[in-house]
């Protein structure tokens, strides 16, 4: 009996230690900073595109009027957007330009933490304004990344904030951060949830189970950006791509944590999302998902790739090399 109690106690002690190691081990904020740089640029571009028809998509009386959305069944108080309260066109444009300024700050890493919080609130406001209306996976990914960026020191590296500190004589390396680790862990888990449920939804479809879905997606003229109809002569390729997509999405949440299978999962993500970007015209969505997958990169790997570039930029701007 004593052995059982001791074993159980040991199990929970080990579990608590593993939990703490997973969530609370400080990490170099390099990975988070790289994702801030890339996701910030993506959010700036994504929201800049609304400028082409801001009143039409975001305006109160646009293609999906605010009153129309609010009257839709299932619309609840907790679905919010600042654009629900913005009427006049001049105010809409003022808020939009300020929002673009926030996304630019996030991209450059200027007042990074404040910019990340504002960018998240604004990104949610834009997407809730066009849900339903004109949203798609890109908006979901943008909001996901912005939400976790604001939780950690996303401007600790590769940012104007860092260069500003350097200019003031603070050349110290950014300290490993627990908050950075929590942000990255949440991104990773969120990504696992996305792939897992994406796979479950596909399993409801006959074409995904039979192995023909990639054809129906690739031969859709409205999506297509590069010719893919040559696949008609290669049913085996269609089947391979279809089955590989489903099995990869389904196994991602389990295999991405193992260091031997992780590279396969990540490179597969690059291949799938890169394919969507190149062939199906969703360059932004494909890239945003690849950026999210970078959360599984070790900070050392990120620094090995990015620091040389960051040092050159730093040397050019403040005359000192820094990561």
């Amino acid at each position: 009996m004593t052995t059982i109690v001791a074993s159980t106690r040991n199990y929970f002690a080990e579990l608590w230690r593993a939990w703490n190691n997973f969530w609370f081990t400080p990490t170099d904020p390099a990975t988070l900073a790289l994702i801030r740089l890339l996701a910030g640029g993506m959010m700036l571009y994504t929201h800049f595109i609304w400028s082409f028809d801001l009143a039409g998509f975001i305006g109160r009386d646009g293609y999906t009027p605010v009153e129309f959305l609010q009257a839709m069944p299932g619309r609840e108080w907790s679905v919010w957007s600042i654009f629900d309260w913005i009427g006049p066109n001049w105010l809409l444009w003022t808020v939009h330009i300020l929002a673009l300024g926030v996304f630019l700050c996030l991209f450059l890493g200027l007042f990074s933490r404040i910019a990340a919080v504002l960018a998240y609130l604004l990104a949610v406001s834009y997407v809730q304004r066009v849900t339903p209306g004109a949203y798609f996976g890109l908006d979901k990914t943008n909001c996901m990344l912005a939400m976790y960026l604001m939780l950690g020191p996303c401007g600790a590296r590769y940012s104007l904030d860092r260069l500003w500190r350097l200019r003031r004589g603070d050349a110290s390396e950014p300290a490993p951060s627990t908050a950075a680790n929590i942000s990255i862990r949440l991104m990773q888990l969120h990504l696992c949830v996305v792939y897992f449920f994406s796979a479950l939804a596909k399993l409801e479809g006959n074409t995904w189970r039979l192995g023909t879905a990639v054809w129906w997606a690739a031969s859709n003229y409205e999506y297509q950006s590069l010719p893919l109809t040559w696949l008609a002569d290669w049913p085996i390729l269609i089947a391979m791509f279809t089955h590989a997509t489903v099995f990869w999405e389904l196994s991602y949440p389990f295999l991405v944590w193992n260091r031997f299978t992780r590279p396969w999962m990540i490179w597969m993500a690059v291949a799938v999302h890169g394919g969507i970007a190149l062939f199906m015209g969703m360059i932004t969505f494909g890239l945003a998902m690849i950026f999210a997958n970078l959360s599984f990169l070790k900070p050392e790997t990120v620094r090995r790739w990015v620091d040389p570039v960051a040092s050159r930029v730093s040397l050019a701007i403040v005359g000192k090399k820094v990561g």
Binding site: G137, K140, V193, V194, F197, S198, A201, K202, E204, G205, N206, T207, W208, A213, W216, A217, N220
Partner: peptide, 8 residues
């Protein structure tokens, strides 16, 4: 997260 689901 039901991208291209249940069927394209």
């Amino acid at each position: 997260y039901d991208f291209f689901s249940p069927d394209p």
